[in-house]
Amino acid sequence: MRTVFPVLTVIGVIVALWYAACIPMNSPWTIQQLERAGKTMTVTEHIADTWAQERPRLPAPHQVFQELWDTVVMKKITSKRSLVYHGWITLSATLLGFGIGTGLGILLAVGIVHSRAMDMSVMPWAIVSQTIPIIAIAPMIIVVLYSIGVQGLLPKAFISAYLSFFPVVVGMVKGLRSPDAMQLDLLRTYYASSAQGFWKLRLPASLPYLFASLKIGVAASLVGAIVGELPTGAVRGLGARLLAGSYYGQTVQIWSALFAAAILAAGLVALIGLIERITLRRMGMRT
């Protein structure tokens, strides 16, 4: 209960700032319309108008949530106007990409930890891969894959994987290397093979690091899937909603798609957090 009050206060402050910001952002339009019509308004009416425009520069919170309500709850999920429908399109690419990225990341990390050659040769490229803006490389991936006949879900999933493998590599390498010299010496006294060292010590020791990486990775995957929808002029998915919204000046639609993406990401991170808690607790670790 003690945490509820501060949390509500912060939300209240953000909403208040948001409403306040809508007034100067949307005022010019209101003034322009009044001048054109040759009318005047009281200050209260003027402010109310900045919160109720059809295509505001900055939509007011209630407009965004009205749109979210209409497109998430009120529409059938098979409808092209349902955000649940578009959300699922993006989510399926996200999950596939996250799976590919996580698998690839773990494999690379295992290779890097066990082979000095891989450590020297793979890690720099993994770092370089992340310095290239995803928005620049996403269209290339899609074009190249299209030319070899791969389209649909997979190209988006690859972009997702491209973003999500990196935190997994970094976290897993750190985790697999986390056992200290004494623990490694202990295994030497048993004359354990390096495979035994991997399965009995390194892998279990790396799990807390892996989960931290997965939380970052899953959010990055979602960003990747959305970015993957932008350059293709996709008509389905949250990225497509953002794109369509910006073509037609539908700011309310853009913001509601943004919120949907944020809520989806929060849900995914929370889900990983839950799996983490259950797994580590079953392993007897205090969390």
Partner: peptide, 16 residues
């Protein structure tokens, strides 16, 4: 496996 070795820290695996 002629000897058992005890280190300064117990070094038990927390997950076991």
């Amino acid at each position: 496996r002629a000897y058992g070795y005890v280190f300064q820290a117990a070094g038990l695996y927390p997950w076991r």
